[in-house]
Amino acid sequence: MPFPAKSPLILLTAVIALIGGIVAARFLISTERVSPEPVNATWLRAPRPLPEFELLSHSGQVFNKESLAGNWSILFFGFTNCPDVCPTTLGTLNRVVGEIVARGNRQPRVVFVSVDPMRDSVEKMAAYVPYFNSGFIGLTGDLADLQTLTRELGVAVSYSPLESAVADGEQQNYTVDHSTALFLVDPDGRLNGIFGAPHITEQIVDDYLIITGQS
C-alpha cells in the first residue's frame, strides 16, 4: 500500500462524509409536503360563520343558511340590469366550475345574489341566472334580508341614479355600485375565502382547490 499511515484517516473522513450526506439528504428530501397556500385568494384560517338569512331562490324556494349545507358554495353579488361586470363574472364562473369538474372534483354550488331586489323579481332571476349555467342558483328577496348578508360579508352596495331618462319611461333608472369579490363558503355555512378582482379562471380554480383541500 502506498500510504499505509494515512489510510485510517482517509477511511474516517469518508465515513463522516457519508453520514453527513445521509443526514443532509433526509433534511432536504423530506417526505412531508408543506401544504400549498392560495396565490391570489384570501384564505380565512379561522372560518367565519355566516349570519342567519332568508332569501328566495330563482325557483321560488326559501334559501337560507341551511341551504348552503352539503357542498362548497361560491357567492357573487350583482344585478340583472348590469350589462358588463355581472355577465362577464358569471361567464367566468361557468368556466371555473367546468374546470373544477374537469379536474375530477365535485361541482361547487354557485349562488348569484341580487343586490337589486327592487327590480330583480324571482321571475327575472329565473330567466337570467340559468342562462349562464343550469346549475347556478339566483337569490332575491327583501332588502333587509339581503343587507344582513352583505353587511356581514362586507359587500359594498350603493344605488346611483343614471343621468339620462330612459326612452320607455322606466321610473327606476339607477345603477348599483357593488363589490365584485367572490365569497367561498364551506358546507357548514362558514366563510373560508375571498377571491378579489380581476377574476382569472385558472387562478380561481387553483386557489379553490387549495382552500377546499382538493386536487
Binding site: D84, V85, E163, S164, V166, D177, H178, S179, A197
Partner: peptide, 22 residues
C-alpha cells in the same frame, strides 16, 4: 334598442361602478 349610451365601468377598491359618459 330604445336607447343607447356611452358607459364606463371603473373598479375602486374592489367595487364596480358604472357611469354614463356624455
Amino acid at each position: 334598442f330604445a336607447t343607447a349610451q356611452i358607459h364606463q365601468t371603473t373598479m375602486d377598491d374592489g367595487v364596480a361602478r358604472m357611469r354614463m359618459i356624455d
